[in-house]
Design a protein around this nucleic acid. Sequence first.
DNA 1: GTCGTTATCGTGGTATACCATATATGAAGG
DNA 2: CCTTCATATATGGTATACCACGATAACGAC
Lengths: 239, 239
Amino acid sequence: MNSIVTLVQRTTAATPLALAPLNATSLRDQAYTLLKNAIADTDIYDPQQELRLDERQLTTALGVSRTPIREALSLLEQEGFIRTVPRRGIYIIRKSKREMIEMIQMWAALESMAARLATSNASDEEIAKLRHLFDEFQNSPPSEHLGEYSDANIAFHTAVIALGGSQMIMEATKNLMLHVRAIRRATISQSDRAARSIVDHLKIIEALERRDTELAERLTRQHTLDLAAHVDLHCGFLG
Amino acid sequence: MNSIVTLVQRTTAATPLALAPLNATSLRDQAYTLLKNAIADTDIYDPQQELRLDERQLTTALGVSRTPIREALSLLEQEGFIRTVPRRGIYIIRKSKREMIEMIQMWAALESMAARLATSNASDEEIAKLRHLFDEFQNSPPSEHLGEYSDANIAFHTAVIALGGSQMIMEATKNLMLHVRAIRRATISQSDRAARSIVDHLKIIEALERRDTELAERLTRQHTLDLAAHVDLHCGFLG
DNA sequence: GTCGTTATCGTGGTATACCATATATGAAGG
DNA sequence: CCTTCATATATGGTATACCACGATAACGAC
């Protein structure tokens, strides 16, 4: 599972063989993808988690020079995943509660616009596929498969955004998703949110099917703003 | 200024140390800002315009090595301003009409969310300031000062977003603004858009003043979506 | 023992040399 | 002339050496 610790430990441990095929893309892009996935898979809100990165360590861990590592880190810094402090180190950023809420609000803005666009652009077939995402939860309540339901939940929102057809919105929400994913997973098990969530989703699907632009947009926005309000009330562990 | 003597005197004297902004920025950041401004000030849709950049040329022009230039270019590439093609060159990107429309739609999503948030977060005084942006156009029609009105127009939208209070949305729209600015300027003189624009703006301000969340959001969204539709119809010069 | 001074080191920032390869150039062959 | 192939060149990618500077430790004065 590609945690940062795992990456660094590879230095002393086994061979850094994982990056043998360097023919396809640049080392910078490979390092970027690798580091981004590693950060995404790290539970950065665990107080025990080490959040400091070291260029030289990453160099030996990935078997490349500092240059591509540094370029990859620059990109991650601009995306808000890390912060470099001269002569101190490079740190993975913990988002504050305020930042997390702002990201969710931004998500609400973009997904509701996507839903609006979807009522004009998406085909009936594409919209119908949304229902199948929840087929397996029709008979048994989602509380029994929280892990699977959480994945389906995220898949649903991603799918709605895809139906909007805007490459720009899809790109913008990809990074938001990485930041927000941990929160969605953590809150799905709180106060029966899973059951209420599935009701909201079905209403959104119905609105899309009926091509009710205003309703689809409003329901989508409100559903995600509810998450923001929930985080505001129940996620005190965030700074 | 900033002689050694001055610096030393500041140290020994008991002056309140208000001198935060010494040139603490890295060459990478300076190059990034410089290049970004240069690109923003370039009329990239002029067919005559040379769009190719050259790393080595930039190094001699800016008097630094390739390293910070390359890092700055990496950032600009990720933001969608340039594209580097291995062994071909680095090119400033012309946005296609589709991409331009998608950016405007995204702008509509974010600004309307900001307007929604503003009805809860902004103070009466802050909202009142919006009116002053158009004071100078009260008596004379904006068509007589298109340049100034265009600036006021952009300032208005930026101000609405600021009233929302979301740092995240403000950041995200900054780059969108750079891309869209040229289009806003170009279309303000078309088909009496300036006069209609000012009417829309006043309605938005009224909605904000009355704390009518839904209305402020809807008017803001529709105003910008109108621009998207206008670009779709009248900006054939875009790819 | 406490405080201040100095030496060393760790770290990110920068410059530069080198590399790989697509493209351009041009000479040779037809 | 045209085609073909070898060579040269340009350009982005990578590795590495060096630098500046803050932090920390080691040390000395009192």
